[in-house]
Design a protein around this nucleic acid. Sequence first.
DNA 1: GCCAACGTTGGC
DNA 2: GCCAACGTTGGC
Length: 152
Amino acid sequence: MRYWLMKTEPSVFSMGDLERLGQSEWEGVRNYQARNFMREMSLGDRVFIYHSNTAVIGIYGIGVIVGEAKPDPFQFDPQSDYFEPRASKEKPIWDLVTVGFERLFIEPITLNALKSEIGLGDFALVQRGNRLSVMPVTAGQWGIISGLGGTV
DNA sequence: GCCAACGTTGGC
DNA sequence: GCCAACGTTGGC
């Protein structure tokens, strides 16, 4: 089993939405590196769910991969913001995975807390200018982050 | 709302 | 293949 982190803007889709729905397809990823990471995901992989562009930025809970990568149907929909004119059903470009709800933290693990944790210097999320919306988390990083709270 | 950092596009 | 221009991300 591997570990990951996925970002979301809570005004679009939040950890609370995931809890309410039980699971959700993670459409709209339009970055090749992020897509390639999604293709590496396996059933049962754990995912930190991170809220960006919000008042309290940080990790709000844990999800689990319940559906592996498959073509994102929104790329075929001209009415969608996620439409991709270069894609066809024969040659899709973008994928999505399905994320299931596992746990909502009582309090988020804030970006500030992650940044001040000495053992997380190599973590892509806390490096300057990082814009990747899907990234791997090592088992060591997962352990450190889990120890920062949230699960209490 | 600002703007630095970054990925993508497209002309050459 | 280079790289300037452009659009987007995301913290502040």
